[in-house]
Each structure stands twice: as C-alpha cells, then as structure tokens.
Design a protein around this nucleic acid. Structure first.
Lengths: 239, 239
DNA sequence: CGTTGACTTGATTTCAGTCAATATCCGTGG
DNA sequence: CCACGGATATTGACTGAAATCAAGTCAACG
C-alpha cells in the first residue's frame, strides 16, 4: 500500500480513483489496485530530463501522474522526431517493457513530472495474477498502432500545412485551456518542437503560423500557440 | 481436423509443420494445432482481388499459406498507401479482428492466394483455451509497431531515393530469388506499387530506377526489379 | 546592458510532383 | 501471324512546395 517516495500532496484515494480510469487498469477494483501498487515506485523528474533513453534496455513501464513527456526518436544523423506526447494518466514505455527489448525512443519531460514505475518482471507477474491487465495492455497496443498508422498515412499524403493543422488539433484535444483569447495549448511548444512533430523545419512552422495569424486562425507567442478559430483550422486540416 | 475446402495439393502434415513455425502458433504441439484447425476455414482467392476492404467490420484473422497480399490504406482523396506486404505463413487482419473494430485497410492479393480464416469469436475462445496464443498475438503486435515506427521515422527524415532503397532491401529480404543476373524481387512490382510503398509518385520511381540502372545497381523491366549490386544499394540506403 | 535563445523574414536552391508526349511491352482477336 | 488496344514505363519541361542559408528582430534574464 505504501508507495515509496510518493509526495504527500497526492491523495491516496484520489490516486486510486484516477488509476481505475486509466486504460491499463480499467475494470480493476480498489482492492486489486492496492495490490498492484505494492509493486509501484514513485519517480519525480524535473523539466527537460529523461525517464529513459533510446536504445537502453526497457526495464520499466511508467504511469504518468503529473506533468507531460514527449517520446522522441533520433535518426542516425541526429534528427529528432516526436513519436507522441504523453499526458497524465497515460502509460509509456509499455511496448518495449512488455516485450522485453530496448526502448525504441527516449522519454523527455517537458514539465516537472511525477510518475509511477513498474518493473518489467513485476508487470509479467501481475499479468499472471490479473489476466485483465494483459487484455488491457493489448487494447492499448492496438489503439497505439492505429494512431501510428493514421499519422503514417498523413505524413505520406498530406502537405506540411495540413499536417501542422492536424497536429495542433490533436494537441488541443488533450491540452486545451480556455482563455479569453481562444484555446491555449497548455504546454511549452517551440517552433522546433512543432517541426519535430510534423516532420518539417522550424522555419516552415514559423511561416505557416504567421500566415495563419494574419488570417485570424491563431495567435502565437514565444513557445505558445492559441487557437482563435477552431472551425477554420479544422476545415484546413480536412481539405 | 478436416478443414473445409482446403485443396488437395496441400499436405496436412506439411501444413501443421508450417503452422508451428508461424509467429502466431509458435510453441504449439501438433495436437494443439489440430484442435485449432477445427475452427479454420480455407479461402482461395484469385490475383488482384480482396480478402477484406477498409472500413468493413473485422470478422476474420487470416493466415496466408500461398501467394502474396498487400495491405493498403486509402486516403479520403483516394490516394493509396501500402502499409505492408504479407508473404506466406504470415497472418494479417489480426490487429483489427482481435480488437473487434473495423479493418483499417484493405487486403489485396498480388498473386493467387490460399489462406486460412479464423473468425473473431473463435479466436477469442481459442485464446482462453491456449493462453500462449494471446501472448504470441501480443508479440506480433509489438513487432508490427516497431516496424511501423521505423518506417514513420524514415518517411519523416529521409529523401525519396533512400526510402526507395530501403523498400527494395526490405522486399529483397523476404522475396529474394537468385538469378544469373542478380537478385530478382519475386513479385509483380510496378512503378506505381513502389511509389505507394515509399510515399512518392511513379514518375520519380522511374527516374530513380533509370539512374540506378545506368550506375549498374539494378536491372529493371516491366513490373520487375533485379538488384545487381546489393552492397552499393545498401550504402545508398544508409547514407 | 549584453548575452542568449526563440522567432521572423527574405533570398535562394533543390527536390520532387505535375503535366504531356512518346515509347514499349503484352495479350487478344481478326 | 500481325495489328490493335491497353496497360506500363520513360523522358522532358515546367512548377511548386518546402528546405536551406543568412540576416536580423525580439523578449527574457542574469
């Protein structure tokens, strides 16, 4: 029950409640979760640090409680590509850790983060005890694969501008914060970051955002994007 | 034991042998396989037809015994992208059918094909009886995801020429056929097909292949590619 | 302030897509 | 057997989207 090193501001019951809503632990009773948590370790990381690095043996699955991370892949030439953004109550590192290989990418924090870690071996044990855990993991994989396929298709067929629109809409889905100016994407978001999500360059991002700003679709600032006209942006993304 | 509609030229024992080597049925005894096959139906399809279409409910998992198929995805604008090629003793349709949604792509035969079909519901039953089946399915998903990630990275960072080189090398891995001229890619392979694998156009494919031919890397013909200088092609793919 | 990192903008280049014309191969049927 | 028609492929000319390169601006922060 006692999770090592979990900071006091996280209420135990709220935590259980939250966990029972994650895709990994969906359908688990409080008692089951208590048992699961026996194995969990808390991890706290500052902004701009790494939970794990590409190519290292995958020893842990993580559940993000607070903050945000991005999963990066690095090409041999050193170019970065953002594979996905992870927000609280999502798991990451699961593909690698469940199959027992190496992490295919690096997990970089974009804010201060609080997470739970479960070791590779413990997870397998737990899956034996709770078959539902394996089923849930499988469902997560399936969903992940679909998302990746969608983005692959996008990358193969759509021009940069539309890809950027899609990327912003996806971010808005998860990180929307209403303000009087519009929908603020609530995360540090440089032109460089955007270009890595979209498979382009920071220059092109800058140009497109400028053009959109004059058209009244967005307001931009240093590492900030505010969507001021959602419907027009959606129209742009589709056709 | 008796599989409906399986043509006589397929020997039962050879079939069992083959199946036990597939990633889905790895580790299964002959007796287990016999039981599994109770549920299997044979499907025979001509070249250039479809096992299933994108967007239809995923009712079956298929195991390809003979021939070859490609899994296509179609954009709303009608552009095709080849997600992967499937060769004998691989399974396809598994992601969708195991998760119970719709097929995310279409499975088109490139040759006459012989396959076994297992229904969605039967597979779930069998997974209960043989937990190893679920584990194997999971491993397949993991591998598939990795491959897709690799190709995503490639698409996001590499120029067309290198992507084509990679695509040909991947095909050579699975469909190599030694000839006196070099390594023949043993499948009907039009410029159009290549462009859909690489995310480009048939014109660009034609130009690149012509250039390569004058450099002595390949020999090309109508729907044929022969790799004559593998090491140079590999060098091109890497850097 | 001065330095630094994020951003913008213009000029230029390049890669690859588009369009159009032509060539080549292959099966089919007269 | 040859001619025709329909894929399939090649090639050239052109265009365009986006990358690259190069200044330069702006805001934050010690």
């Amino acid at each position: 029950m006692a999770i090592k090193a979990l900071p006091p501001h996280i209420d135990h019951h709220v935590l259980l409640q939250k966990l029972s809503e994650t895709s990994l632990f969906k359908g688990f009773s409080e008692a089951d979760l208590e048992q699961l948590l026996e194995y969990a370790q808390a991890r706290r990381l500052e902004s701009d640090t790494y939970f794990f690095h590409q190519g290292t043996p995958a020893q842990h699955v993580y559940i993000l409680l607070e903050g945000q991370i991005k999963v990066l892949q690095l090409t041999p030439e050193g170019q970065q590509v953002v594979m996905r953004m992870v927000d609280p109550i999502e798991i990451f590192g699961c593909v690698a850790a469940l199959s027992g290989g190496e992490y295919p990418g690096s997990a970089q924090t974009t804010k201060a983060c609080q997470a739970l870690a479960l070791s590779h071996t413990d997870i397998l044990k737990l899956m034996n005890r709770f078959p539902q855990l394996a089923i849930n993991a499988f469902q997560i994989m399936v969903k992940r694969t679909h998302e990746l396929q969608d983005r692959y298709l996008e990358l193969a067929t759509e021009p940069v501008e539309r890809r950027l629109a899609h990327a912003l809409l996806r971010l808005a889905d998860k990180n929307a914060k209403e303000t009087d100016e519009g929908i603020l994407l609530d995360l540090p978001l440089s032109r460089q970051d955007l270009s890595e999500m979209v498979g382009s360059t920071l220059y092109t991002m800058s140009r497109i955002l400028s053009a959109w700003e004059t058209k009244g679709l967005v307001k931009t600032g240093r590492e900030r994007v505010i969507i001021t006209n959602m419907s027009k942006l959606e129209a742009l993304a589709q056709d």
